[in-house]
Design a protein around this nucleic acid. Structure first.
Lengths: 337, 337
DNA sequence: TTTATATTTGCAAACGTTTGCGAGCAATGC
DNA sequence: GCATTGCTCGCAAACGTTTGCAAATATAAA
């Protein structure tokens, strides 16, 4: 046993008086090696508790068994579920995942991309930060042709595979649901102006209004972030209006929950005084009182599909054409409408 | 530019007509290298978009910049928050994290440990699965002296650093709170019998009863898992009793929420008919109606401390003595009691 | 017996870095 | 003028694997 305690192929070779190359081939069950040698090698390997050094293998193969994942924030329900899906798929395919978060910070996202590239990951799965408008760091990936696919929060002007949920349809259905229920003044607590998912949800909202001959009132749309406090402040803004809305469609559940709190705080009743619809179907949405009508988003599935696409791309080399997948959303009607 | 598109130190050396070793030293700002050479190297490196190959560096240094993390399930609020803390600390210290989940499966936990060892991680952060009773895979880590620290769900018979929350005190305070409020028959929806956190919470529950001269009734303790459905089935079991409890202390928030649903389903009122206390302070607990009294657990902080301990251990070599840290919990009193 | 063929193994280079050691050379001190 | 010192740099080995190629041996064919 060496001082490091780590057994290498050379140790096995030395003890068996054969060459390292023979040991390597024996361990890989190469046809050139005699059954006896193979057996001797394998038993000694087991005995010494030998495990191949992935680092050395990666250097030699010029590719690791690592998949890099970048998300805005791990603790967000949607992302942790997506990561779970990614991990499950990656695990089965023999990959491990390196997870890093941008904390909605563009610079940190860039640093993360570079760090993962330095680690020579086999591919990347990326959900971009709120503040990512520039896509230079993705060009870098293209140039070094590292496979990567976007999920959920995609970068529209980059030609890569993308896995999204049908934000437009989800928002459309949610808004239409409110219209059918007879609500007249439907407000929208929108997300950041320039990220794809909130743009699409806004479009769905607008489109539903239009196709149902409802007036689109700009004042009823409040832009903000994606968190609870944005819901709170957004609702405060709506309160300033001379005429209050009778329903709110929020860009996601946290924002809806934020508004929810403020609504209750002001003694308003849901859905009597004001109806509320979220987006994501976070576990929490079923448990508030009244339970929240929301749009179910298959987070785990998004992660899974993204990982599968990436692995496919990794395996198929240069001749892979990027694909986009849009996963279906589903309106979950509860008592908040 | 080579066909791979990846620039190496050799490429720089060749273009500048110097040796790779000089390039390496220049990039590391080694005093032996003249300012002019350094400048030339650095500008060319920037121009060619050179990034060091971590894999090669790791092989040479015999250590990676990777920290392995094993959790039961990523999507659990507590763990995703802890991972977030880990990532933040690791990022600042120049490490990336490899995250894998055991899915509460012992075999998969073992496989994960081996895979991470193969990847030559600098250290490991582990929260064990429900079904981990054997600790042979941790002995393996000890033998190859890979630093590792347990967090939250620790393995008691392994001599390693541990970061936990004060489960005993949390449970004690929660139970005592119920007693002070005048509840007489306090039930406990317990977790798995043999994992440390649920054992300690049970102990805290028992101890609070005892020190307040209350009778400990075995029938009021129902063992189960850590998820919502365990809360549902657990409550069903309590319903079978000839005399219903007037309060429930659940091993964690998901279990409490599960019971919560069933309680409402049966038309019982919280806290009038039955009081309910959870454990974890998941965001959800504040938003159900009535809001749930619970024990705050600093998940992010647990991850942070564990990561800091691990990095300290990595840096201090063999002469590191394992340490245990117990983080304080805090009772959050809301309207469910 | 010789030649061809198959079987099993080892040599050596390579992957991209880092680093101990020594070489070359100019400047300095005597 | 010679030895010493200091400054730059390159050679070569090493980290643990994999793999093309050749070598060695045994077996079969002629």
């Amino acid at each position: 046993m060496k001082k490091t305690g780590l057994v290498t192929i050379k140790d096995i070779a030395k003890q068996l008086n054969i060459s390292p190359s023979t040991v390597s081939r024996a361990l890989h069950n190469h046809p050139d090696i005699s059954p006896e040698t193979k057996k001797a090698v394998n038993t000694l390997a087991k005995e010494l508790d030998y495990h191949p050094d992935s680092v050395a293998q990666s250097l030699q193969k010029r590719r690791t068994n690592l998949i890099g994942v970048i998300v805005p924030e791990i603790k967000h329900n949607f992302f942790s579920a997506a990561i779970s899906g990614i991990e499950d798929v990656a695990y089965r395919a023999g990959y491990a995942i390196i997870v890093s978060q941008s904390n909605e910070n563009y610079e940190r996202e860039v640093v993360n991309v570079r760090a993962l590239m330095s680690n020579r990951v086999a591919g990347l799965l990326i959900s971009i930060s709120q503040n990512t408008t520039d896509s230079e760091h993705f060009r870098l990936l293209e140039r070094q042709n590292t496979p990567f696919v976007f999920f959920d929060r995609v970068c529209e002007d980059v030609n890569a595979s993308k896995v999204m949920v049908d934000d437009f349809a989800g928002a459309y259905t949610a808004t239409e649901h409110l219209i059918k229920k007879g609500y007249q003044r439907i407000a929208h607590l929108a997300g950041p102006k320039y990220i794809s998912i909130s743009k699409k949800r806004l479009e769905g909202y607008k489109s539903a209004l239009k196709e149902n001959d409802m007036f689109y009132d700009e004042k009823l749309v409040v832009f903000g972030g994606m968190n609870e406090e944005d819901g709170r402040s957004g609702f405060q803004q709506l309160l300033q209006l001379e005429q209050m809305p009778d329903a709110i469609f929020a860009v996601n559940d946290p924002v809806a929950i934020g508004a929810f709190e403020k609504i209750k705080e002001h003694g308003l009743r849901i859905p009597k005084d004001i109806a509320l619809v979220g987006f994501s179907n976070n576990p929490i949405s079923a448990l508030v009182d009244p339970p929240l009508t929301t749009v179910d988003q298959p987070a785990y599935e998004v992660g899974k599909r993204a990982a599968m696409l990436l692995i496919e791309q990794i395996n198929s080399g240069d001749d892979f054409v990027p694909r986009e997948e849009v996963l279906k959303t589903k309106l979950i009607v509860r008592n908040s409408t």
